[in-house]
């Protein structure tokens, strides 16, 4: 084991240039993948925010009793996908009117025509044109409701666009991952190709395949880890600058930050390890 460790690490010293190129290649691949992941997370967050904006307004008849109102509240609350319900009384509605139009309703009319309503917020995953239509038609059947309103066209557009963005993102992510694997394994193959004489001599003096393979795998793993560290630092700096100088609204991964950087290191190590394992196989045949 001591020999494997020494040999694995001395590979760095002996082939500085190719090792550096491998590390840079891995870090560029990870930088691309990581940046893409951040963009994807931001798009996802944006879609969630937009979905949260979608509310179902349930207008109530003027003459319903408090108990009837409470029953409607309970029945809506019992539906799946409902996140929260807020009650807007007639007076609240008049206040909102005043905020929106800058004029008191009573200065125009001598009574308040605005109905009381429930504003139903939904869980983001539940915000789809079909599911909301089902919910709306259920609410309309409840006694004491006058009408149900939601922004159907926005919702349909959102559902449609989000699906497209997710599909395109997954496609781009897969392409990026595949190109990263090819790029890394080809670069590592060059590193190992430079050592083909060493491998040949190892075979001739009686080294087993496992013995030859181990230092290369260790080297690939460490190269991947170094590439991961470099990529994590670059992504961190990039996000720091973007969030400080361009947009404060950019989500910087929040609670998942540690997991994200951990994933970058892990992906780098796995890329390096797999790249080495695939490349060394050719030279051991």
């Amino acid at each position: 084991m001591g020999y494997v460790l020494r040999e694995g690490f001395s590979g760095f010293k002996r082939a500085k240039l190719s090792t550096t190129i491998s590390i840079i290649t891995i870090s560029i691949s990870l930088l691309l993948l990581g940046t893409f992941a951040v963009i994807f997370a931001n798009l996802h967050e944006l879609a969630d925010t937009l979905r949260r904006e979608v509310q179902v307004e349930v207008f109530l008849l003027d003459d319903i009793s408090v108990s009837q109102r409470n029953r409607i509240n309970e029945q809506i609350g019992a539906q799946s996908g409902v996140d929260s319900i807020s009650y807007i009384s007639k007076d609240d509605a008049a206040e909102i009117f005043k905020e929106e139009f800058g004029e008191d309703i009573y200065s125009v009319l001598d009574f308040n025509p605005l109905p009381a309503s429930f504003r139903v917020s939904l869980q983001p995953d539940y915000v789809h044109a079909d599911s909301i239509a089902t919910l709306a038609s259920f609410i309309e059947t409840l006694e004491g409701t006058e009408s149900v309103q939601y922004r159907q066209s926005l919702l349909e557009m959102l559902t449609d666009r989000i699906q497209t963005v997710v599909a395109v993102s997954i496609g781009v992510g897969i392409l990026l991952a595949i190109s990263a694997i090819f790029l890394v394994s080809n670069t590592i193959r060059l590193t190992i190709y430079a050592k083909r004489k060493l491998i040949q001599t190892m075979k001739l003096v009686g080294a087993t395949r496992g013995f030859i393979r181990k230092p290369f795998l260790l080297e690939g793993f460490v190269q991947g880890l170094c590439g991961g560290v470099l990529a994590a630092i670059l992504i961190y700096i990039m996000l720091y600058f973007i969030s400080n100088y361009f947009s404060e609204h950019l989500i910087v991964l929040g609670d998942y930050e540690l997991y994200f950087y951990g994933a970058v290191l892990l992906t780098g190590s796995i890329l390096g390890l797999l790249g080495s394992a695939v490349s060394i196989r050719r030279f051991l045949r």
Binding site: R14, A15, K197, L198, Q200, T201, K203, L204, V205, G206, A207, T208, R209, F211
Partner: peptide, 24 residues
């Protein structure tokens, strides 16, 4: 195949081009 390395350990091989490892 997996026994070939063990055979090679019982035989010393000398090459015309030496096959020394240039990096050590």
């Amino acid at each position: 195949n997996r026994d070939v390395p063990y055979l090679r350990r019982t035989v010393g091989i000398i090459f015309q081009d030496m096959k020394l490892l240039e990096d050590r």
